[in-house]
Design a protein around this nucleic acid. Sequence first.
DNA 1: CAGTGGTCTAGACCACGGG
DNA 2: CCGTGGTCTAGACCACTGT
Lengths: 239, 239
Amino acid sequence: MKSLTTDIPQYLLIKAELQARIQSGALKTGDKLPSERELCAIFTTTRTTIRESLAQLEASGVIYRSDRRGWFVTPARLWLDPTQNTNFHKLCLEQGREPKTVLLNGRLTTVPLDVMKPLELQPFDQVYLLARLRYADGRAICYCENHCLPARVPELLRHDLNGSLTEVYQTHYGLTYTSMHLTFFPTSVPAHAAAALGIMEGLPALQLSRLNYDQHGRVLDYDIEYWRHDSLRIEVTTH
Amino acid sequence: MKSLTTDIPQYLLIKAELQARIQSGALKTGDKLPSERELCAIFTTTRTTIRESLAQLEASGVIYRSDRRGWFVTPARLWLDPTQNTNFHKLCLEQGREPKTVLLNGRLTTVPLDVMKPLELQPFDQVYLLARLRYADGRAICYCENHCLPARVPELLRHDLNGSLTEVYQTHYGLTYTSMHLTFFPTSVPAHAAAALGIMEGLPALQLSRLNYDQHGRVLDYDIEYWRHDSLRIEVTTH
DNA sequence: CAGTGGTCTAGACCACGGG
DNA sequence: CCGTGGTCTAGACCACTGT
């Protein structure tokens, strides 16, 4: 199997071989790849090498793993313009995807340290903490923690939080998102987010934090989101 | 070594151990970690396991590898607001980093397929293609391909392209970047970019494409950039 | 239950970096 | 030249999936 005429490592050749079968359409979105042991037989090599190829395809977002079920071809990315105030559900529907948001946990708690400063709070102030999971076409793609100010949205937990927060704010409190400060960077999924997303800790992810202001220019809430690295494309137009 | 009371895999324990030494400041920016074989001895395990820990720390951007030299603690990320029209050199200096841009290759060529559409060109039209590498504090962090329209910037290659393109446009052609369409997503470094950046093909990266317009609203050029995934934080403020 | 991926061992040889 | 990481072999056992 080892090439005699080049220095290209075997796992890159196998990677290219697999990628070609995906890009040509021979393997389509959602299709399952052969098992690792079958791939070993096909390419006459060991699992270590096969897994190196698979890991690289995973890093580029072409395939993903489902724990102990196998490797699958990644669906198209959802794209979003963070400077537009459109919500997740609208976004999905516009792109022909089926959205779902599930509230995992909602409670009043002492403000986490990394949230204290952006929200301009004191060490023992309380915030509503909502842990939510977002799906597109049944696939969990974003784990999201909203930190909301009780001063702005008292009794928040009485409302249905499985839908759009934007709408709850608007309907019950007359508050509208008007501006925000957004920061994001590539990193890997921390343990708690990985557990919620049903993926392995340490996979690459895009961490996105958002400090939202209402129509009066007051701080409204602070979100920390972890997006699957393979599920998202960001588009921004400036004028 | 295997824990008797938990199910946490060894490589995650080692990862946490290393991460603690970095976050506590015991290992500082730019410091070299012990060699993989030394780490094997320290943690009484094999290279496979050690390399799994290292790979995860690399994915989260905490450490990076320098080919056959070892593993190092990653410097702070450069941050940038893509909606502001500030150039790379200004950006670096504002953040106390030393910028450098190097022209790797500049030539007139037939428009690449993936660039044809955004630039609104025909299949055999010509563009200037500039391949450039950007450094912060001597570390290559971004590989950049500019595709420029000869109609807008005739004789472009006669000018010094190792600095800011913005300034060349302004000084020699009276053209100013005024708006843009930006799209980016996490993926992995393709071979040609990896070679230029001096890193391994397949490492995670942020691919960023930018379609620029001049002050007359005309398409000016199209950039494709690959940023090291560990070197960049993006910040956007909306109003 | 059989099959899958997740984790791990204990080696090997190579190409390249730096003194 | 030696030490480094890069690649690869040929196994092993486990936890979990789906039937």
